[in-house]
Amino acid sequence: MMLSQIAMALGFSLILLGLYGALTNRDIIRMIVSFTIASTGVNVVLVSVGYLPGRSAPILDEAVPVAEAATRITDPVPQALVLTAIVIGLGVTALMLAYAYRLFRARGSLDISDFTELKW
């Protein structure tokens, strides 16, 4: 199997595992951990889409001169997208953790079966 196919299979497996964990856990911190795993899976899938076999990293130095760059580097656009997505994932994780902490201070529990206001 090729490298990008291995990485893509791993990425989709991580997304499914993260969704399963986020849907079946009752502890809020464990749900946020599962969300982190799913976010990593999305990043792996996006990077493996941009990989071209046999080519090198899109950074120009003495190993990859400018004249041959068009035939020797991979696609740099998905890498730039994933770079942004990682940082946004950190922001979303920090926001979810802050909400979890406020919830614990207000109610003294992190189990989702203790919060029944929005049920009907």
């Binding site: 792996v44 990077v47 990989y51 990293a57 899109p58 991979t74 890498q79 994933v82 770079l83 990682i86």
Partner: peptide, 24 residues
Amino acid sequence: SLFASVLFLLLAAPDVAMTEAAIG
């Protein structure tokens, strides 16, 4: 996150690997 970062390096994305190692 650590293993995914080494995998990013093998997928020819060292900048993503650096960010994932520092942040993830």
